[in-house]
Write a protein that binds this DNA or RNA. Structure first.
Length: 509
RNA sequence: GAUUCUGUAGCUCAGCUGGUAGAGCAAUACACUUUUAAUGUAUGGGCCCCGGGUUCGAAUCCCGGCAGAAUCACCA
């Protein structure tokens, strides 16, 4: 860190010496008893009853207006902001006015932590305020916070002055963003509530939350480039997981009927407003179920989340209003392509599919098999058009090496993806539990790899061994938690729903 | 990875065809016991992202870095 201090930082450091001179510890160790919060006071204070006459509250000083022998301050705690009224006489100890004249008027800065005790009242202008009787300094801020102010016009429209908006500063110094920008905390609290809702729902239905390895010998369960690392004692490479699917299925083999994990996954790929190198996927696997059951179960979950967060199933996302009311629309991928292009691709050969892709100016090459070409057609021409929640069903077998073959449609598998607002939010299937078929599918992947597909899967022999011991029919799903959080909080970028989105390291000085 | 735009005070931003810096808020000092973007008066604060070049002279023009944003490509 730079040794260079700004004028304001030097002044704040000098104030520490003043505290010392006055015998006040600017970083006291003892606890400060808090008996309420700002939101409670604003909600519960009744000027007729004169309740809340002994409140004790602590937080960060975010505004200070000195008025000679009195002062108004804004105190911000976890729940919001409350005004304080501080008068010189109230803080006096006999004839000693040090606390007001020195501490409040000179040494306290915006950003400092303070604790106060007093009674609640309403000012002339009707603002609920704490009349401070006791004042305790709790912690000095040596760096000045950006000062963001709000004004309201007659219509009640809020104007924000000097907003702290530079995305780089906001993400690198999220702690400042959280302090200064109202609404940021709200987004993250909603994310937490969303995860709690999911956990409750899964637990209610018999789900068992588990943890499986992040460091894996074989990065399986998805098609993606992994991060690689090295274990010194064993002198072997390890991969950071790109998915946890194969481990959860091993647990189904082991006799658990319903397991789930919020899995932090890592993929060594590009980053943009919908991709972070580490991201969270919820996966759950339920024995003796198929993908139809999974659709029913999952749409109810989404409806529940919407209700828990917004009290309604209609949610505004950007320009769109999305209805999370179950049931969701269901359509086969081939039907979806036919709907958009007018071409029936179900009987087409690989070369014809490649020609069709070229007709739509899609970027294709010879390493792409039939399945990948269909996937290309769908994701380029169709995916973005599904705004309302829609289950896209029955994918080509080539793209789905871990999925059970369709019970009646040749060449397809029992898989669905859930599209919302033009994005894939979930991916699920009737799990492939035939070990001989699974081995053959892995071998297909090896051939793709030999053709140059750098995202084809590795063979996981231990996983095959597990399947050979027998796995019950099972349905499993993966849900992109960050993307779901973006939808549910109406945020346009993944960085807004991750506390600390990945960024290039700051240059050290 | 490609293209476009951006980088000036703690924060938000001005700064023209080149003449070595400005505003508001914040800070400092004084006044003010119900203010609320408090007010009034005064004051201080800058490696103009970094490194080269052109020039008598560069925040400004040119080249090269670095960092960020937006769009596109790959992916969830």
């Amino acid at each position: 860190m730079s040794e260079h201090l700004s004028e304001q930082e030097i002044i704040r450091r000098d104030k520490l010496k003043e505290f010392e001179r006055l015998g006040i510890d600017p970083y006291p160790a003892d606890l400060f008893e808090v008996n309420c919060n700002s939101l409670q006071i604003l909600n519960e204070y009744d000027d007729e009853q004169k309740n809340l006459q002994e409140v004790s509250i602590a937080g960060r000083l975010m505004a200070l207006r000195l008025m000679g022998k009195a002062a108004f301050a804004g105190l911000e705690d976890q729940r919001g902001r409350i005004q304080l009224y501080i008068s010189r006489n109230d803080l006096a100890k006999g004839e000693d006015f040090t606390l007001f004249d020195e501490v409040v008027k000179k040494l306290v800065d915006i950003g400092d932590f303070i604790g106060v005790k007093g009674y609640v009242f309403k000012t002339k202008t009707g603002e609920t305020t704490i009349h401070v009787k006791e004042f305790k300094f709790l912690g000095k801020a040596l760096r000045p916070l950006p000062v963001v102010k709000e004004t309201k016009d007659e219509a009640g429209n809020v104007t924000i002055h000097d907003a702290f908006v530079d995305p780089e500063l906001r993400y690198r110094q999220r702690y400042v963003d959280l302090v200064v920008n109202t609404g940021v905390k709200e987004t993250f609290l909603k994310r937490t509530k969303m995860i709690q809702t999911i956990r409750d729902y899964l637990n209610e239905h018999g789900g068992i939350e588990v943890d499986t390895p992040v460091l894996q010998n074989i990065p399986g369960g998805a098609a993606a480039r992994p991060f690689i690392t090295h274990h010194n004692a064993l002198d072997v490479p390890f991969y950071l997981r790109i998915a946890n699917e194969l481990y959860l299925k091993r647990l189904i083999v082991g006799g658990f009927d319903f397991v789930y994990e919020f899995s932090r996954n890592f993929r060594n790929e590009g980053m943009d407003r919908t991709h972070n190198p580490e991201f969270t996927v919820l996966e759950y696997y339920v024995a003796y179920k198929d993908y139809f059951w999974m659709m029913d179960f999952t749409e109810k979950l989404f409806e529940k989340i919407a209700l828990a967060l917004h009290g309604t199933t209609e949610i505004k996302v950007g320009e769109q209003t999305i209805s999370f009311k179950a049931p969701f629309k269901r359509i086969g991928i081939l039907e979806a392509i036919q709907e958009k292009t007018g071409t029936n691709v179900s009987e087409m050969k690989e070369d014809d599919l490649r020609e069709l892709c070229k007709k739509y100016h899609l970027d294709v090459n010879n390493t792409m098999g039939k399945g990948k070409l269909i996937d290309e057609l769908f994701s380029e021409l169709c995916e973005g058009t599904f705004v309302q929640p829609t289950f896209i069903m029955d994918y080509p077998v080539e793209m789905s090496p871990l999925t059970k073959k369709h019970r009646s449609k040749a060449g397809l598998v029992e898989r669905f993806e859930l599209m919302i607002n033009g994005k894939e939010i979930a991916n699920a299937y009737s799990e492939l539990n035939d070990p001989i078929d699974q081995r053959a599918r892995f071998e297909e992947q090896v051939k793709l790899m030999e053709r140059g597909d750098d995202e084809a899967m590795f063979i996981d022999h231990d996983f095959l061994r597990a399947l050979e011991y027998g796995m019950p029919p099972t349905s499993g799903i993966g849900i992109g938690i960050d993307r779901l959080a973006m939808l549910m909080t109406n945020q346009p970028s993944i960085q807004e729903v991750l506390f600390f989105p990945q960024m290039r390291p700051e240059k050290s000085e």
